[in-house]
C-alpha cells in the first residue's frame, strides 16, 4: 500500500434485529474471526477497520458502531446513526421477520439520518441456505421499488460464519462513499462530521492499515 496522504475516515453504523449476526459480521471484517460464543451487544460497541481501494489509491477507515438489536433499545439508535456516513441494515436470510425489520430501518434512516447516507441491505447467514426464508428475488424487487422512489440502496448477502461476502460489503460501501471529495477537502462528506479536519490531526495513522 503506497504511503500516500490519500486517507479518509467514515462513520458506519449497523442496525437490525437482535441475533441476525451484526456483531459477527463486524468481527469477521475487523478480526477475520467467527465465534459462535459471542456475548450479546448492549448499547453499542465501537470498532475500527480500514479497507484499501487500489483503483483510486486510497485507504478508507471505518469507525464502526455496532448497535443492540432489542426492540427496547430502538430509541437509542438515533444517537448512533446521527452523523453516520454509511449504514448496514442487516437481516438474517433464515428469518423473514428480520427482513421486515431491516426495511423499517431503511425507512427510518431515510427520514432521520444525514442526507446522502450510503445504505447497504445485508442478508447474513448465507451459509444456512437450507433454512432460507427470505427469497433473493423479493429482496431485488424491494430494492428496485426503493430505487423507483429515488432511494439508492444496494444489497448483498454474506456469511459471517464462512466469511464469504463480508469484505466485499465493506469495500463496496467504501467505493460508494465520497472518498475523493473528502481527501481533496473540496467538499465535506455528506454527513456532519468533518473528516477533512480529522485528517490533519492524525498524520501518524496514514498507511498503517
Amino acid at each position: 500500500m503506497p504511503p500516500s496522504q490519500r486517507f479518509a475516515q467514515f462513520k458506519l453504523v449497523l442496525l437490525g434485529e437482535s441475533a441476525v449476526g451484526k456483531s459477527s459480521v463486524v468481527h469477521r471484517f475487523v478480526k477475520n474471526t467467527f465465534d459462535n460464543m459471542r456475548e450479546s451487544t448492549i448499547g453499542a460497541a465501537f470498532l475500527t477497520q480500514s479497507v484499501t481501494l487500489p483503483e483510486i489509491n486510497a485507504t478508507v477507515k471505518f469507525e464502526i458502531w455496532d448497535t443492540a438489536g432489542q426492540e427496547r433499545y430502538k430509541s437509542l439508535a438515533p444517537m448512533y446513526y446521527r452523523n453516520a456516513h454509511a449504514a448496514l441494515c442487516v437481516y438474517d436470510i433464515t428469518n423473514s421477520s428480520s427482513f421486515q425489520k431491516a426495511q423499517n430501518w431503511i425507512k427510518e434512516l431515510k427520514k432521520q439520518a444525514s442526507e446522502g447516507i450510503v445504505i447497504c441491505l445485508v442478508g447474513n447467514k448465507a451459509d444456512l441456505e437450507d433454512e432460507r426464508q427470505v427469497d433473493a428475488n423479493a429482496v431485488t424487487a424491494y430494492v428496485e421499488e426503493l430505487s423507483g422512489e429515488g432511494i439508492q440502496v444496494f444489497t448483498e448477502e454474506c456469511s459471517a460464519k464462512s466469511g464469504e461476502g463480508v469484505l466485499e460489503i465493506f469495500t463496496n460501501v467504501a467505493k460508494a462513499l465520497p472518498v475523493e471529495e473528502t481527501i481533496n477537502g473540496a467538499s465535506k462528506p455528506s454527513a456532519g462530521r468533518q473528516s477533512g479536519v480529522e485528517l490533519n490531526r492524525r498524520p501518524q495513522q496514514q498507511g498503517c492499515c
Binding site: 448492549i42 448499547g43 437509542l76
Partner: peptide, 10 residues
C-alpha cells in the same frame, strides 16, 4: 455519553 450509556445499561 456514548461511552457511559453502555456502562449504565449494563
Amino acid at each position: 455519553e456514548f461511552i457511559t450509556m453502555n456502562w449504565w445499561l449494563l
